[in-house]
């Protein structure tokens, strides 16, 4: 049976992992390759690396990090953050990433999704959508969640899937960094609106939040950062809990070489 995926997210700046609260106040939480290996050993199903470097030098450091991760980590990983062209998508995949997440660039030019899908296939393209609640609707935000757009999250999700994106990474900006739980209404609405897998992001504070995202939000995967980095939740313990709640999860591997 297909399992719910647990995905630690590593924010990377100039080759180092960082994580902030509500995208500010960054704290250093270690070497990304080492951390990736540790998460893989502990049973993470997938990893996401977001490049938050602002400089060209930081970006080339990030690509070298992608290569090093691909050498040692034998689970799938997605990279994102500031990727804006079909060429940059190809470079990231050639460096060894399995998927690339696109956010601000596809809001500015939705056709980029079609271009990438034609070149590398939709299974490698993740549409990242940052959302804030506005009265009774959900609005898409751009530029790392700093600027609102005029787009409705549900309408935008349908469009990116129509254009061929293979997965959605949905971050609630209202919840991000609050540890008050994922935005279940948002997840449920998006998951029901599209046929592709949905990754829940923003707000995880407890194991129950993750259960709720899968059961009530119908998410296919749950993503979190600081609660994993600072060992507030251990992946093995989380998987035991989810299994006890009737959610299929992948236990630690049985095979030995």
């Amino acid at each position: 049976m297909l399992t719910a995926r647990i995905i630690p997210c590593l924010d990377v700046k100039d080759g180092r992992t960082v994580k902030g609260t509500n995208f500010v106040n960054l704290r250093d939480a270690g070497d990304p390759v080492e951390l990736a290996q540790r998460y893989s050993d502990e049973g993470a199903d997938e990893l996401v690396f977001l490049d938050i470097s602002a400089t060209l030098e930081g970006r080339s450091t990030f690509l070298r990090m992608v290569e090093r991760v691909a050498e040692v980590v034998r689970i799938p990983f997605t990279v994102g953050g500031g990727i804006g062209t079909a060429d940059a998508v190809r470079w990231a995949l050639e460096a060894g990433a399995d998927k690339v997440s696109l956010n601000s660039a596809i809001l500015a030019r939705p056709q980029l999704i079609d271009d990438c899908v034609r070149g590398v296939g939709g299974q490698s393209i993740v549409a990242a959508i940052d959302v804030r609640r506005q009265d009774s609707t959900w609005t898409v935000w751009t530029r790392a969640g700093t600027e609102p757009t005029s787009r409705d999250a549900i309408v935008w999700a349908r469009e990116v899937v129509e254009r061929g994106a293979g997965e959605l990474l949905v971050t609630s900006m209202d919840r991000d960094g609050t540890k008050s739980g994922y935005d279940l209404g948002l997840l449920r609405a998006l998951s029901d609106a599209v046929s592709v897998p949905v990754i829940a992001s923003g707000g995880a504070g407890t194991m129950k939040h993750m259960r709720d995202a899968v059961v009530d939000g119908r998410a296919d995967a749950v993503l979190a950062a600081s609660i994993f980095h600072y060992r507030e939740i251990q992946i093995e313990e989380l998987k035991r809990y989810l299994a006890s709640e009737g959610i299929p999860v992948r236990p630690a591997s049985f095979s030995t070489l």
Partner: peptide, 15 residues
């Protein structure tokens, strides 16, 4: 074929 709940692609870990 999606029946409304089956997500496509089949993406993730399976036995």
């Amino acid at each position: 074929e999606s029946d409304g709940t089956l997500k496509i692609p089949h993406m993730g870990w399976n036995t």
